[in-house]
Design a binder for these strands. Sequence first.
DNA 1: TAGATTGTTAATCGATTAACAATC
DNA 2: TAGATTGTTAATCGATTAACAATC
Lengths: 231, 231
Amino acid sequence: MTLPTRKSGTIPGATVARLPIYHRVLTSLAAQGVTSVSSEELAVACGVTAAKLRKDLSHLGSFGTRGVGYEVAFLSYHIARELGITKSRGLVIVGMGNLGRALASYRAFVARGFHVVGVFDRDPRVVGTSFINGTESLTVQAIDELAVTVAKSDAQIGVITTPGESAQDVADSMIAAGLVSILNFAPVVLAVPENVEVRKVDLAVELQILAFHEHSLDESDQSDLPRVGIA
Amino acid sequence: MTLPTRKSGTIPGATVARLPIYHRVLTSLAAQGVTSVSSEELAVACGVTAAKLRKDLSHLGSFGTRGVGYEVAFLSYHIARELGITKSRGLVIVGMGNLGRALASYRAFVARGFHVVGVFDRDPRVVGTSFINGTESLTVQAIDELAVTVAKSDAQIGVITTPGESAQDVADSMIAAGLVSILNFAPVVLAVPENVEVRKVDLAVELQILAFHEHSLDESDQSDLPRVGIA
DNA sequence: TAGATTGTTAATCGATTAACAATC
DNA sequence: TAGATTGTTAATCGATTAACAATC
């Protein structure tokens, strides 16, 4: 018998994007006391096909047992290890509008291994105000203080929740402060050095993609309608 | 000379997902008084390659002029038309926690052609409370009232911002109320009939994908380190 | 006409799927 | 051994890219 071997080489992007889902479902199964799961069962719970799930996992190594399935805790640990979420990672959030304040208090972040180490805003009227996020109280800081806070804490990810106009300036400040991972909610394309990874979430874009779905239905409704005319 | 012809057939999903970006950038260019743009210029502003942009647009029809470029207003209109965002679409939001309240007041939604027609929560202590979103005041309703509100208004899209435990129930209520487009922020896979389109946004997943990036850097840092030993 | 840029073609790349040999 | 399920292979599918003929 050989120890499970971690595959060398890189993991496809599409696979990386699904690993967090697998991890969350496995965590949930473990909480329910489930100790073993087949690729078919796990796939259904994750909303993917069993073939895709097994293919994804095959990029990490060989963590299942043929004829049996996967041990929930074991697989969960190896996915967490691969994702680098075995330790909690620090966030800074810049832009304390509605969305920024909501994210600063978002309980799912803590539940999934992140902690907010600082919140920032450009507006002097907002700087210095405090609010409660879960257990601790956060005081809004000026953006000048970003670099010092990032250095003092172990912050690794910057979240931008400003309007589009300020987003590039904020990104520049984050990069100057040493951050190389940015989650950008502002509807602008950020220019960053190539060692910096930006993920963009545009909530209005998500709605517009759904609007396309609605619109497609409208059109097919029309062509499905019986046409009045010469028969 | 022939009129620009709209292509028949379906538009690839990857293209549909980028059309809102093109539309937003075109809107921004128009606001700056730019009337004409080349695929190269537009692509840079959108963060894609010119080849990809032209390929995407080719699925909608032929709206450019060879040797010249695209007329901003003309192209913008045709993308909006394709996406079905020439008219404002109504949203209902269920789950008035931090995220739900933030989205209910999110100005970018109105700016991009959506309006909130109702907000809902399960908690009787929250039902009946009001808050201001831009110009109007919204009163939180009980989920029982969802169907009536959807029927009375022109709501077409349901947004779920509840905890995971309630999300499936909420989705069922939305579908019963006649909604077929759902934006789901709860970290669960919703079971829905196949005529219903669900888009899932998991904010913690976005962070976890960035954590993978951080983690990859950690690993390459280590292998880059000079190793002490027999040389 | 000469220069520029589109729209399309063909090649490449990556992701998905189905099937099955390996093996518990 | 018989039944079950993984991990892998090969085929398919869809998306991206580069190059260029069409044409303003």
